[in-house]
Nucleic acid binder design. Structure first.
Length: 341
DNA sequence: AATGCGGGGTC
DNA sequence: GACCCAGCATT
């Protein structure tokens, strides 16, 4: 019999008293748990909550989700970002519905094979839904463990991922893996925060190495910084009565397959084309993504200039916009047009 | 091993 | 601005 670590006992007792009441913690359904985990990938709990409610309401079973169209799913996902998650959500729903008869597999290995399910999500579903002993390693876990044990191996290196994953497995309470996993993530979210962690109310302050040396803020260590490139988008509003022209984006770029206004992208801020028929820009936004800064200008013009790829353009009724998945940038443009009119 | 992929919150 | 968030897929 393996003894439960002091670390695990302390965080679990803290968790029992201090955790938030979140909807996906009140279910055993692998389907709901999977939904919540995919929604929460690189996404804060407060941002994901509304989407979790929308998805469980619109698609109460994995069969409902499997039978939905990809566009319907993307449309429900609109505004949450990382849209490949929505496409993989659909793939996995269809796979589970057809190949597993609507029942999610109950082994880590099979879970890991599902589209959009990686090591973190497979461990989360395995431990929360099936009580299997797999330790989760997410951003919270990296932070808590790097501080408690003063591990300075970069978390964005292969060596670091392996090291933290082994450490997490060694600490896991194999008799309560689900609660243990919830506890370490909740501690990272509520107490052991990136900036100004609340060490004085931490249940493991006494055994925390970084706290002892006052080094909390120096963990975890990352080796790479993300660099941002600038892009210049010129969007054209071409309308007639209740119709306007929209364009579907292509693959291998941001917002794959989503809809926007006809676009001319330029390598520099200037739009050096014959644009005598263009209005002065009616709106301009800069839109910040993780790796790109989009400088967007919106013009009114009566017809489609030759610089636009018309093969992916078509006229739609303005009302149809509600049914098309739009990037936040485009959605915001229409929102503000609405207000101004 | 390195890179791309959103949108929003915090300091 | 810089950093982070219940990461994953692709190259």
């Amino acid at each position: 019999m393996v003894q439960t670590s002091a670390f695990s006992l302390l965080i679990q007792n803290w968790y029992i008293e201090n955790h938030r009441d979140l909807p996906w913690r009140n279910t055993d359904s692998p389907y709901f748990i999977w939904l919540s985990e995919v929604i929460l990938q690189q996404t804060r709990v407060v941002q994901g909550l509304d989407y979790y409610h929308k998805f469980t309401r619109l698609f109460p079973t994995v069969h409902d989700l499997a039978n939905a169209s990809e566009q319907e799913i993307l449309n429900t996902w609109q505004g949450l970002g990382y849209y490949s998650r929505a496409r993989n959500l659909h793939k996995t729903a269809k796979h589970v519905d057809q190949q597993y008869n609507g029942v999610f597999p109950d082994s880590y290995k099979e879970l890991l094979s599902l589209p959009g399910v990686g090591p973190y999500t497979a461990a989360a579903i395995a431990s929360f839904a099936y009580n299997l002993p797999h330790a989760v390693v997410d951003g919270n876990v990296f932070r808590v463990l790097s501080r408690v044990f003063s591990v300075d191996t970069p978390i964005d290196s292969t060596k670091g991922k392996k090291e933290f994953s082994e450490l997490a497995d060694n600490l896991l309470d194999k008799t309560h893996p689900g609660r243990h996993n919830q506890a370490i993530m909740e501690l990272g979210a509520l107490v052991c925060s990136p900036k100004s962690p609340d060490c004085s109310s931490c249940p493991i302050e006494e055994i925390c190495s970084a706290r002892a040396s006052g080094n909390q803020e120096n963990f975890p260590v990352k080796e790479k910084k993300t660099k941002v490139r600038n892009r210049y988008f010129h969007f054209l509003l071409i309308e007639e009565k209740n119709k306007l022209v929209i364009q579907q984006r292509k693959g291998k770029d941001i917002w794959e397959n989503m809809y926007q206004l006809p676009l001319i992208e330029t390598p520099s801020p200037e739009l050096n084309i014959e644009k005598s028929s263009f209005s002065e820009p009616m709106a301009s936004y800069s839109h910040q993504l993780s790796h790109q800064k989009i400088h967007a200008l919106f013009y009114k013009t009566p017809e489609i200039p030759k610089e636009v790829d018309v093969s992916r353009c078509r006229w739609i009724e303005k009302e149809e916009l509600n049914d098309l998945p739009l990037p936040r940038l485009i959605d915001r443009f229409f929102e503000e047009q609405e207000q101004d009119s």
